[in-house]
Design a protein around this nucleic acid. Structure first.
Lengths: 210, 210
DNA sequence: TGTACATCAGTGAACGCGCGTTCACTGATGTAC
DNA sequence: TGTACATCAGTGAACGCGCGTTCACTGATGTAC
């Protein structure tokens, strides 16, 4: 349970030198967060899961908040990758590519609701971290680029920015309402893909006033 | 600081009998949650703020979770009232009335981000409370009724339900992204009302496929 | 190839802390007679 | 109107708990010579 063989191939594990604690702490926290909700994690418990004393993590992280930032940063990278992969599934410039980006977003939220909430919902010290801010913007850029391609406008265009943000709002709201079980039973009949495609068409098909 | 004169008119306060502890605990928690974030509240600290021993709250609430549920329930009531008031500002059936409901939602999130996060973001035991579930549905019904009036269809209509949910997604996502400071600087130039009206027109103006 | 040694990455015991909750209690209130 | 008494709504001390973090330490690793 303590060992993750794949992670230990580079440097041999001994009883003493763990070899991969940073990554394993992040994995342990992800696990805890999925099981007990965001905030339901402690340094002590994560260390226990990694099979290490409660002091060991402090060799890799300054404090609890830095562990959290590590988890969120890693999650952001995975999310962005998933969104890019989703977009690449459909022809560049198609509205389906836009919807696929949203689908990747929502799928992430469904698969890892704890980490998703941690990454977005909480204001726990990581809110103003410049690294995470930058990662967040890179993630949003995926949406912007797809929207731009679909509209046939440059990504810097203000209308593109607005549409991208509106699309993001929709996907974000739908993700949270879904994982928080706030959807009324009546809505559940329509699946994510249909919703996203409908929203993308509605938002991209109409010029913004103001 | 401890006394809230308005709350104490019905029953005179003595040094011993507080007279209004339940309401004051909820107020104290709201305060704490706004200052220290959701989860940044403790029974002990809230009791301290209410000027009462840490054991006193247990005369009014079964446990910590019940206090939380009290706060969320009260917040839901205020939110629904604000949404209804917003809708009533514009002619029944107008798209502006729909946007006004969304504006009330977002304003609530901006004004009380802590309570808003607590009510929606967290999975802290209140997720499956039937009372809160019911309150949530009553709140959503406000959106449904406005959407129905605007579309000229009965509230039970499936298309109405879908549109209402999409509108909610949008308002919800926009609220969270705003209070979490996740909006890129480029978007900030467009204000809430313009966004909401654009979204409402886009979503209500196009039939749902599928 | 062997050895000395700096560095790295752990240990485990300890700290002070604030928390949620329980307990036996007590003072104030409202009601029945 | 006065008194007895049940009930209500507090007190404050105590409990056990797990937490984040620090500390002096030690064993393993990798490198310079």
């Amino acid at each position: 349970m303590t060992e993750s063989p794949a992670a230990l191939t580079v440097r041999a594990r001994t009883a003493y030198h763990h070899g991969d604690l940073r990554a394993q702490m992040i994995a342990a926290v992800r696990d805890l967060v999925e099981t007990h909700g965001p905030e339901g994690f402690s340094v002590a418990e994560a260390a226990r899961r990694a099979g290490v004393s409660s002091a060991a993590p402090y060799k890799h992280f300054k404090d609890r908040a830095e562990i959290l930032r590590g988890v969120v940063g890693e999650a952001m990278d995975r999310l962005r990758t998933a969104m890019e992969t989703g977009a690449a599934t459909y022809p560049a410039g198609s509205v389906e590519a836009v919807a696929a980006v949203g689908l990747a977003y929502i799928s992430f939220a469904r698969t890892e609701p704890g980490v998703f909430r941690l990454s977005f919902g909480l204001t726990e010290g990581h809110e103003n971290d410049p690294d995470l801010q930058a990662k967040g913007e890179r993630t949003f850029d995926v949406v912007v680029r797809c929207a731009a391609a679909c509209l046939g406008l440059p990504p810097e265009d203000r209308h593109v920015q607005t549409c991208a943000y509106m699309l993001w709002c929709f996907a974000h709201g739908h993700s949270f309402l879904t994982i928080d079980n706030k959807r009324s039973t009546a809505d559940s009949r329509i699946d994510d893909w249909t919703y996203l495609l409908t929203a993308a068409r509605a938002i991209l098909g109409q010029p913004v006033r103001g």
